Amino acid sequence: MTFDDELYRDITGFAHDSPAWVQHTAEVWTEAGILVFGALFVVAWWRSRRDSHHAFAIAALAPLATVVAYVCSELLKSGFTQDRPCRAVAAAAPSLAGCPPPGDWSFPSNHATIAGASAVALALVRRAVVWLTAPLALLMAFSRVFVGVHYPHDVAAGLLLGTVVAAAAVRLGRRPATRLAEAMRASSAPAVRWLTGPGPAAAPATAYAASHRRR
């Protein structure tokens, strides 16, 4: 038995002995975490509508970079074809979550990849949020081992993959995305202008109008 197998047994054993509310919270969070990151992407997009073209472009690229990381994770899964620990590790505690069917491979963890990519992409939009997104990503990755559906090395690889791919995707796409954002903000189509927002030029105009009303 490898060290990773032993660590998996220790974590799932701890999970099995945890209070019911802890188990339930982990089962909910391991899936709901993706929804939380999705909500943070929406918030980042909404706030960036009054930012510069460059800032808006990065906010728009953030979820796309996460999708690219997910696709890379799926491709790697197809190459490694590693079975899930909830089937492969002998004498481990029963998994809290249902063990995925055969053919749904384990390495790397898609959830951890999405979490790592989301955390980095959102931090590139606004650096201060890394204090929120990084702990959320780590908790989400750990929860995949806690509920028994991944090895520790699956989630470690997923976090690393998501981080690297998302950072690279944003870096490579930011210039064309900035040009696209500038063109879209110049569009005469109301729906397009609403989607991209007015940009930073609207802030002084709004302040001027407000001061005029006060007079």
Score class of each variant (00 low, 15 high):
residue 107 F to D: 09
residue 32 A to Q: 09
residue 32 A to E: 07
residue 102 P to Y: 13
residue 2 T to R: 13
residue 200 P to V: 12
residue 52 S to I: 05
residue 159 L to H: 00
residue 164 V to R: 08
residue 164 V to D: 08
residue 58 I to F: 00
residue 129 V to S: 09
residue 37 F to Y: 11
residue 114 I to H: 10
residue 40 L to E: 03
residue 42 V to K: 06
residue 30 T to G: 05
residue 100 P to M: 02
residue 78 S to E: 14
residue 204 P to T: 06
residue 190 P to N: 00
residue 160 L to Y: 00
residue 19 P to Y: 10
residue 19 P to C: 10
residue 111 H to R: 13
residue 171 R to A: 15
residue 66 T to M: 02
residue 69 A to F: 01
residue 158 G to T: 08
residue 28 V to R: 11
residue 114 I to S: 12
residue 164 V to N: 08
residue 18 S to R: 10
residue 194 W to A: 13
residue 215 R to P: 13
residue 180 L to C: 03
residue 90 A to T: 12
residue 58 I to Y: 00
residue 215 R to Q: 13
residue 144 R to M: 04
residue 38 G to N: 06
residue 149 V to Y: 02
residue 162 G to C: 00
residue 66 T to Y: 00
residue 68 V to H: 07
residue 158 G to H: 09
residue 159 L to S: 01
residue 25 T to R: 00
residue 120 V to N: 03
residue 137 A to M: 02
residue 169 A to L: 05
residue 9 R to S: 07
residue 21 W to D: 03
residue 131 W to N: 02
residue 155 V to N: 05
residue 185 R to T: 01
residue 152 P to C: 04
residue 164 V to K: 08
residue 163 T to D: 01
residue 43 V to K: 02
residue 128 A to G: 15
residue 51 D to W: 11
residue 109 S to I: 01
residue 160 L to N: 01
residue 200 P to D: 10
residue 135 P to L: 11
residue 183 A to V: 03
residue 146 F to N: 06
residue 65 A to L: 08
residue 69 A to G: 01
residue 189 A to C: 11
residue 36 V to K: 05
residue 61 L to H: 07
residue 144 R to V: 06
residue 11 I to P: 06
residue 7 L to Q: 14
residue 58 I to S: 00
residue 85 P to E: 06
residue 169 A to S: 11
residue 34 I to R: 04
residue 208 Y to L: 14
residue 164 V to W: 09
residue 8 Y to I: 07
residue 74 E to S: 15
residue 105 W to D: 06
residue 84 R to D: 11
residue 140 M to P: 10
residue 131 W to G: 06
residue 129 V to W: 15
